[in-house]
Amino acid sequence: MTLDQMSSLAKSSQSHKPNSPNDEVLAAVGLGKTFTLHLTGPTKICALEGVDLKVGSGVCLGLTGPSGSGKSSLLRCLYGNYHLSSGDVFIKHKESTVSLSKAGDRLILEIRTWSLGYVSQFLRVIPRVPTIDIVSEPLLALGQPQKQAAKAAARVLERLRIPKKLWPLPPATFSGGEKQRVNLARVFVKNWPILLLDEPTASLDSKNRDSVFELITEAKQEGSAIVGVFHDLDFLSRVADQTIRLAPPVQNSISQRP
C-alpha cells in the first residue's frame, strides 16, 4: 500500500486551506497511546485515542487542544520517542514508506538522521561541548565536512541572534531563551523532509519569534512537512496551513510524561 492509500483510510477532521500540495510524507492512522504505570497499581493512562492525520510536503499542520489533550505526546509518538499502543504512523523515507510500528531501532535512527527532525522543549547535550559544535552535529552525522558544517551552523546561529562570542561556549550557562534558540538552530541547520516542533517559540521575544517564523516559512518553501504545537495562537495562525484539534481521551487525566 502506498502512503496515499494509507492516509486516505484516515478519517481526518483536519481543516484544509485551499491549494495545499497533496503529496503526503507523514500520516497517522488510528493512533492511540496508553501508558501503563506499574509502580502505582498498575494504572492505565490513555493519552491519545484514534488520532488520524496526514501532512504533505510544504505544509505546516498545527496541533491545538486544551492542556492535557496529548499534543506533545502525539509529537513524541510521531518521532518514535513513545511506543505506539494502537494504530500506526507512516513516514516517507528515501523514496519508500516506513511503518513506524514495524520499523526496527536502527531504521528509526536512520530516519531521524535523514528524514525526520524534532525540536523538543529541552536542550539535552553533553556538557562542555561548544555551542557551534552542537549545532554542527546533525550535518556531521550526514557525513558533511567539519568546515562546511560549522559554516552552516554559524549562519543559523546568526539568524537566531546568538551573539558570536557565545559560539565557542557550551550552552549550560545560557539563558532559557538562548538555550531554546540553540535547540532550534541545531534542527534548522539542515533541511528536513519532515519536521516536528514542540513549542518552538515558548520563551522567545517577538524579534526571535519573527526569525523562527522566517525559518519555518523557508523550510516549508523547501518542501518540509511540519507538525507543530504552538501555544501562541497568533503565531499558530501565521504559520499553520491546517490545524487539528485534539480532545482529551475519555478516561484520560494526564497526558504528559508518565
Partner: peptide, 21 residues
C-alpha cells in the same frame, strides 16, 4: 531493550519504570 530515548521516556517494564523513576 530499544532506542535509548524511547526506553527512558516511555519505559514499559516494571523494573525499567522503577529504575527511571
Amino acid at each position: 531493550s530499544g532506542l535509548t530515548d524511547r526506553v527512558l521516556d516511555d519505559p514499559r517494564e516494571p523494573y525499567t519504570q522503577l529504575l527511571v523513576s
